[in-house]
Write a protein that binds this DNA or RNA. Sequence first.
DNA 1: ACCTCGACCTGCAAGC
DNA 2: TGCTTGCAGGTCGAGG
Length: 287
Amino acid sequence: MPELPEVETVRRGLAPAMEGARISRVEVRHRGLRWPIAKDFEKRLDGQTIDGLGRRAKYILADLSSGDVLIMHLGMSGSFRIDKDTPGDFHHDRSKDVAHDHVVFHMANGRTVTFNDPRRFGSMKIVARAKLDDEKLLKSIGPEPLGNAFDAAMLAAACAGKKTSLKAALLDQRVVAGIGNIYACEALFRARLSPKRLASTIADRKGGPNERAKALVDAIKAVLNDAIKAGGSSLRDHRQADGSLGYFQHNFQVYDREGQKCPGCKSVVKRIVQNGRSTFYCPACQK
DNA sequence: ACCTCGACCTGCAAGC
DNA sequence: TGCTTGCAGGTCGAGG
């Protein structure tokens, strides 16, 4: 479900209920997420205080008083819900099926934070903070696109040797963190670059940035910032932790708009499949 | 080492 | 009204 803007929205929504709060008890109702939840999961969380909630790429990281870090990924269909008392009341969100409430955090402040994930592509894992740099899930992830370190030179260098399409490169988390199918399409449209273009064509012969790299970096930052401001995109079932909906889906220029008029010209948005995933673009605007 | 593709799951919408 | 098919915001790991 979620790409960087949605994950960041979820993180911000969880913060008031979880940051600085103590976990009185964790309840795992289904251990079969992307990977089985470890046997010592509850033991390592019960009684811990969450010192801070961070984000890296599409992962939410909870810093625990024990020195551990709880790493969480929402996969395709994961979401969190905050309740005042017992979960399952659904006073915020009746669209979720309790059968997919897999992990419940009972907070000492009276809040209940429930992780719901029908497809179970999400994951939860605890590692020692001292070993976070060695963590396989995070080790090879590229730069944060909204950080100062991410610029045209960096993106061009990462794309320079690539044999893949520009679209595939943007989806590669080692190139840049947090971009998924929606924002890859939207960023390419804003930069007026074809998703089919070879990734290496945003670099010059020496691997330095050209005008396309600059345009693409600007487009990526702009679209992600716009989406965060809108609370992310609510397709199907994505919601903020308080149950409210993001609205960036109303600002899509090309994503999921096959056959509709291009916002920039009189042409029509086309859908193709690249690396097994839908790509939406305007063949006239995007070169 | 690089790249592509299958696999992991459930739910929903469209087509017959 | 069913049943079947295809598609969905991700990414790991096998195989070429």
